[in-house]
Write a protein that binds this DNA or RNA. Structure first.
Lengths: 164, 164
DNA sequence: ATGATTATTTGACTTAGGTCAAATTTTCGC
DNA sequence: GCGAAAATTTGACCTAAGTCAAATAATCAT
């Protein structure tokens, strides 16, 4: 089921239960949570990426994250209840769902390692290498909140790099 | 298939492919990786916990982590090939495997959030609350490497807390 | 028990990165 | 294009936590 969202609108808000997967078809979205009024961006979605609040979806509990359209956005909503029905019938679909979560878990492990082993500049350079689209298309504010540094620090990192 | 390991021995080393899940029956184990000669502990396993190098297991690629016995250790090895065979036959088993990974992913997400939002003392207090066994039974060195702080800093955090 | 090894604590110093404030640049509505 | 609002950069300063070194404390083998 296809849907459109305007820039700045939210596809999911804290308190809602995430019952579906969101497949981005056009535009950019992000997931973030608030901590002491600070926004921390955890994921950024481009074409064909899938957005979901994993713990809300799995535990059937209210989400604690926002999923927000960063541009005009077109998505396909994959409804959980329908999906569940298909899953019980077709082992293949269930297998795909499992593979999705496996890769998601590996991605989390990788990202955790980045925070444990890299300082701010290394994280920036790593992101530049691995996901240049994020650097190219998003604002300093959003990139900083994705790297978990202050905007000022990110700005300094960038100027130091370009000065070289 | 049951196996015993002596304290300090490794159940998995970098370079090996992790083809099985390890179910701890007795003793304590940990997973860690080395970064610039520093050991970073990522997980600690007690009775009935399951140890696996997820990315090695899923991607069938050489592991980059150690799984080490911290005490005399008794485990049950669940071999991947056998398990795979069972999985194709019994959807139930596959479902359990999927649930395992789902919870694992949620756990990673949670842990990532801890690093993004808590300072060293908060992480310590959080661990004390959520996994007191780790604080009670392991050395400062291991706890520090699990919290990703230096041993000196952890020692100072502890003395500050007990002084209160 | 005693000396040796290992683990933990304490001290002095350094540094990455945060905060707050001001300056500058960019973006956008009209 | 022009002024206002928003985003980014720069500066000054501060703090959490790291490093290195030395001092205690705990553990272990003989």
């Amino acid at each position: 089921m296809n849907k459109k969202f305007t820039k700045g609108s939210c596809l999911l808000k804290p308190g809602q239960i995430c019952t579906s997967h969101i497949l981005v078809k056009k535009g950019i979205a992000r997931k973030f949570y608030k901590h002491n009024d600070k926004e921390i961006t955890t994921e950024i979605y481009f074409h064909d990426d899938v957005a979901v609040s994993l713990d809300s979806y799995i535990m059937r509990k209210p989400a604690d994250v926002y999923i927000e359209a960063l541009t005009e956005l077109e998505v396909t909503i994959i409804d959980y209840s329908r999906f569940l029905d298909v899953k019980t019938k077709y082992a293949e679909v269930m297998m795909l769902d499992k593979i999705f979560i496996e890769y998601y878990a590996v991605w989390f492990e990788q990202r955790l390692k980045e925070f444990q082993t890299m300082d701010a500049s290394q994280r920036y350079l790593n992101l530049l290498e691995k996901e240049p689209k994020i650097i190219q298309q998003l604002s300093v504010t959003i990139i900083a909140s994705y790297l978990n540094v202050s905007l000022e620090t990110l700005s300094r990192i960038r100027s130091k790099i370009t000065r070289k």
